[in-house]
Nucleic acid binder design. Structure first.
Lengths: 148, 148
DNA sequence: CCAAGTGGTCAAGTAGCTTGACCATATAGT
DNA sequence: ACTATATGGTCAAGCTACTTGACCACTTGG
């Protein structure tokens, strides 16, 4: 495969990712959740199962713990998360989603599903599933860097 | 397709895009081009064929013309681009890549090809080509937003 | 030929990150 | 058990890539 081909693939991938991000962001906004930025979505994803500490979040997002802490401040201030004492470590605080945080997460899922459904119209559902499988196989492990 | 499925697909897509961006960035750095940020790559892509005005660039990147102009300042200062008088409009300035700018573009292509080649190892070249075709078909038209 | 539109710049403000210093609690070594 | 080091978190200050707003130079259209 030629370099220019790889570049075309990369450009398409980044364009799709950028478009999807914006679609989700707009969809969440349209469902009445204001003051949420795309970066919050990645935080929500980490908090969703059982909560996490600010330092966990920092590692997951690839930022400093101070930045993660500021992000948590903001989510708390806007009612999407709350800090609880950590059950096993008196230094730490467990950050968990509030009910509003869960609702916002569901809104993001709906918005994502909406965008993906349009892909289905273009490619067929079978191809979209194949796309998902391929992407899962090449997805990197490390932190999800929400910026470029 | 369920919402959670769409979310998993979305997460994988964004993870792959983030990883690819980082890979390209590191590859460009490793080839000796310093002080280049991922956002520059999108600018280079727009400048590559025949140059562009700062306002064109702004529209392409989805930022204000002031921000685009600052980006051009930086690229000029670092030797990747230069401003020339516009042949048809005395108000405008045509921004074109320098030889170093072209070299940096080629470095980015090589880095991208390296990452894509690894996908080929995982999926097979046939599947990677299919991936490229699918992504091209669902890629949005508008500006490429280099941030989320 | 003048009015409105467009490309570009200057200046100031903002938001989200960084680095650096610090405290409180936990964990490991002797 | 006691100290030394590591770790979770916070406070404070600074940086940088963006924004908004005002403005000038040139172009375009009635």
């Amino acid at each position: 495969m030629q370099n220019s081909e790889a570049m075309a693939l990369s450009a398409a991938l980044l364009a799709v990712a950028g478009g999807l991000t914006q679609r989700i962001h707009e969809g969440v906004l349209a469902r009445g959740f204001e003051g949420v930025r795309p970066a919050h979505g990645f935080a929500f994803a980490r908090l969703a199962p059982d909560g996490a500490t600010a330092t966990d979040l920092a590692a997951h997002l690839g930022v400093t713990k101070q930045a993660a802490s500021q992000l948590v401040d903001e989510m708390v201030r806007k009612g999407y998360a709350e800090r609880r004492p950590h059950p096993e470590d008196a230094r730490a605080r467990l950050v968990v989603l509030t009910e509003r945080g869960w609702a916002c997460t569901r809104a993001a899922e709906e918005a994502a599903a909406e965008a993906v459904r349009e892909w289905g119209d273009l490619l067929g559902e079978r191809e979209v599933r194949a796309l998902g499988r391929q992407l899962l196989r090449i997805a990197p492990r490390g932190p999800i860097r929400p910026a470029w």
